[in-house]
Simulated scan of single mutants.
Amino acid sequence: MLAFFIKPLLTLNFKVMKRYFIITLTVISLLIYSCAGEGSYSKDDLLSNYSPEAISESFTEAEEILENQKDIDIPARSLNNIERKLIKEGNITFQSDNCKKTRALILHVANNLNGYLAKDDEYSSDYRIEHNIIVRVPSDNFDKLLVNISASIKEIDNQNISVKDVTEEYVDVEARLKAKKTVEKRYLELLSKAYSVGDVLQVEDELARLREQIESTEGRLRYLKDQVSLSTLNITFYQTIDVAETNFEFIEKLGNGFSNGFKGLLWFFIGLINVWPLLLFIGLSIWLVVRLVKKSSKKKK
């Protein structure tokens, strides 16, 4: 092709040669541009590669990832290289000489160990005062909490300490969460490349279902992290009160008895007034029955 343009140039003058030269360059540029254009693709061409079959295959791959993550088996050797995840819990019950001082001591110890009171209940009667307190402290300070509280106790009624190893479950939940997020990323890629309404709806349904599972798994992981990072001690202590210390005031309680009895009598009359239609109906019914009985007895005589 180039010989076709170059051969006439040898027999023409300078101006004609210049014109032929420009035409030749233009033709060559067009040829190069057309050849380069054969290797380019439009956006629609790219999206057309994601046919329903390709999307279906991607769904199958995603489902396989989810199915395989159910069978995740953590090797015992790998668990040995991971920091143990331990949940420490305890219960302790004891008698106190002064519940107010004991509560103040527990609060002071908990604050010094960067803990807090998760529960603080008090129950009292004429003969007994009881407190139930739940203290949560960082796991490293659990033993210190138990030692500091036990030092002020004369005699412990009941004590129960338990340590649960949740390392395997912790690692398993983390692995499942990672697998689910991998599938979520793949679904998002499919959603951006789906070219029909049906595909979009299908991907969105799968995403909604998957995100529910992710939220549930994240909630379980947060719970395990909370239980591992903070240990729990349930403390119950009580104080008994002697009858002599209750200052049983006979005259005062006798007056309260009369007052309560009078109030009860008033409430009784108020109750009768509230049901007066029923009482009236019952009274009339009895009067009619008695009258009929008397009349029938007179006729027999």
Rank of each mutant, 00 (worst) to 15 (best):
L188A: 10
G271C: 01
N91P: 00
S139C: 03
R84I: 07
K144I: 08
N80W: 07
N13K: 09
K193P: 01
A36Q: 14
N158R: 05
I149P: 01
Y41E: 09
S229P: 01
K7N: 11
N91R: 08
G283Q: 10
I273P: 00
R103K: 09
L117K: 08
N160D: 05
V163P: 02
G219M: 09
I129S: 04
V275M: 03
V203H: 06
V135G: 02
L279Q: 09
D165H: 06
N68T: 06
S231E: 06
V109F: 11
N111A: 12
K185F: 01
I286C: 12
I286Y: 10
R103V: 04
V137Q: 02
V147E: 15
L207D: 01
Q213D: 15
G37S: 14
E212Y: 10
K294D: 06
I72G: 05
A194N: 05
T217G: 07
F237N: 01
I82T: 11
T217A: 15
E130T: 02
H131E: 02
G257P: 00
S216W: 08
N81Y: 14
T236E: 06
T26S: 13
F258M: 05
N114A: 07
I241F: 07
V200F: 06
I74C: 09
S51N: 11
D121L: 06
Y41D: 07
F248G: 07
P52L: 08
